[in-house]
């Protein structure tokens, strides 16, 4: 089946105001069909109000194994965090 049907990634917005979240994938002939399949497979219990389907081959992903070189040198910047700054107790909720 996967030889002739494309793989789609499915994203669902569970409620207005929230981001679409990845829930899984499925095979379909075209985007319209993928949307209908996604509805049937992933939202049978009112899991969402909006579905995105995206060709899996269109997703460009970084790999966790590359973290060290890909994110370097972000880890040695503790001053990017609010907790880095020691303030008096009276104003520490800033």
């Amino acid at each position: 089946m996967s030889e002739h049907m494309k793989l789609y990634e499915v994203f669902i917005r569970s409620r207005r105001g929230l981001d679409h979240k990845h829930v899984g994938s499925l095979h379909a002939e075209d985007p319209a069909q993928a949307l209908e399949y996604a509805r049937d497979v992933y939202t049978r219990r009112s899991e969402g109000v909006s579905i995105w389907v995206v060709n899996s081959s269109d997703i460009v992903a970084s790999q966790e194994g590359d973290c060290e070189s890909f994110y370097d040198p972000l880890d040695d910047k503790p001053y990017r965090h609010a907790t880095h700054y020691q303030l008096p107790d009276e104003v520490n909720n800033m």
Binding site: R16, G17, D19, Y79, R80, H81, A82, H84, Y85, Q86, L87, P88, V91, M94
Partner: peptide, 27 residues
């Protein structure tokens, strides 16, 4: 507006360090 609201959540999270570093300079 959803995308604006979500952008604000992200920005507010990052903004706290900005204010604290400024106050720290003044202090």
């Amino acid at each position: 507006y959803g995308p604006y609201a979500r952008g604000m959540v992200r920005i507010c999270k990052e903004e706290s360090f900005h204010q604290r570093q400024g106050y720290h300079i003044m202090m």
